[in-house]
């Protein structure tokens, strides 16, 4: 098989697993699990520096921005203005142009606020950002975000951190079939089979954080996700067999010794 490249905007990756860096018990585990995942892109959040404790260790002491594509996010933003402000700062901090936009609706569901997401996406695209956008599993909204100029659309599988898998696999499929930009399933993946399923449905990649960071063995789960994403992708490219209502014998139905 010729190399299967995952293209997002002007960037190219060989891994189709994007990982998050949140919720880990310490930076060392973040580093080891990220290495085990073989992901090339990792999301980070933008927050105030602790002024009184400037000497403290930093995530980027462990996750080398020269080795990984850093994907700054807007986690915790509930309106377009805060999201745009956050990403302008991120761009200045690391010269990162590829960003993850998420504008949330409320703290209980963490479902996206699609109206504010669209507003923020319009501004960011106009300012030259390459926007990977977190959104609902809504094909109409996905198309709208693509029309705005987002470089990837990232529908949720289920609420962030819920680990419930894909609530609506059919919609992921519909979104993918209509899209001309990469589709990344972001949020909801709980275990390896969820990740494999996302890629089998045709998603171009999966973004996973909690399922790895909250596993009992983070590094082993990172490997499981790495393998699941590869398996799902291969199954998608290979083309699955049709589902049938009745059995279809696997062994030849002639040459029996009793005939």
């Amino acid at each position: 098989m010729s190399q299967d490249i995952f293209k997002v905007g002007t960037h190219e990756f060989t891994s189709r697993l994007i990982v998050g860096s949140g919720k880990y018990k310490d930076f060392e585990t973040t580093k080891l699990a990220t290495e085990a995942s073989e992901a090339e892109m990792i999301t980070v959040a933008v927050r105030r520096v602790n002024i009184t404790d400037a000497g403290k260790e930093n995530l980027l002491d462990y996750i080398d921005p020269k080795k990984y594509t850093i994907l700054p996010n807007t986690a915790g933003c509930f309106n377009a203005e805060d999201a745009v402000r956050t990403l302008r700062l991120a761009r200045e901090a690391g010269n990162w142009n590829l960003v993850k936009l998420e504008v949330l609706g409320d703290t209980q569901t963490l479902y996206p606020n699609v109206v504010e997401t669209i507003k923020a996406a319009e501004t960011l695209v106009a300012e030259g950002f390459e926007v990977m956008v977190y959104t609902n599993d809504d094909p109409i909204v996905a198309t709208r975000l693509e029309e705005i100029g987002c470089v990837a659309v990232m529908p949720l599988g289920n609420p962030i951190g819920s680990g419930r898998g894909l609530a609506n696999p059919f919609n992921i499929r519909v979104i993918k079939e209509r899209a001309n930009v990469p589709i990344v399933v972001d949020a909801g993946i709980g275990t390896a089979s969820d990740a494999a399923k996302a890629l089998e449905l045709g998603a171009d990649a999966a973004l996973i954080n909690t399922a790895i960071a909250e596993a009992k063995d983070e590094c082993m789960m990172a490997e499981a996700m790495r393998d699941a994403v590869r398996a799902g992708r291969k199954a998608f490219l290979a083309g699955r067999m049709p589902k049938r209502a009745f059995a279809s014998a696997s062994s030849p139905t002639e040459g029996y010794i009793w005939d």
């Binding site: 998050g20 860096s21 002024i51 930093n58 995530l59 980027l60 986690a75 991120a90 954080n209």
Partner: peptide, 9 residues
């Protein structure tokens, strides 16, 4: 405001 990068998903 002075910001930096921390762990996030």
């Amino acid at each position: 405001e002075i910001v930096h990068m921390i762990g996030g998903g």
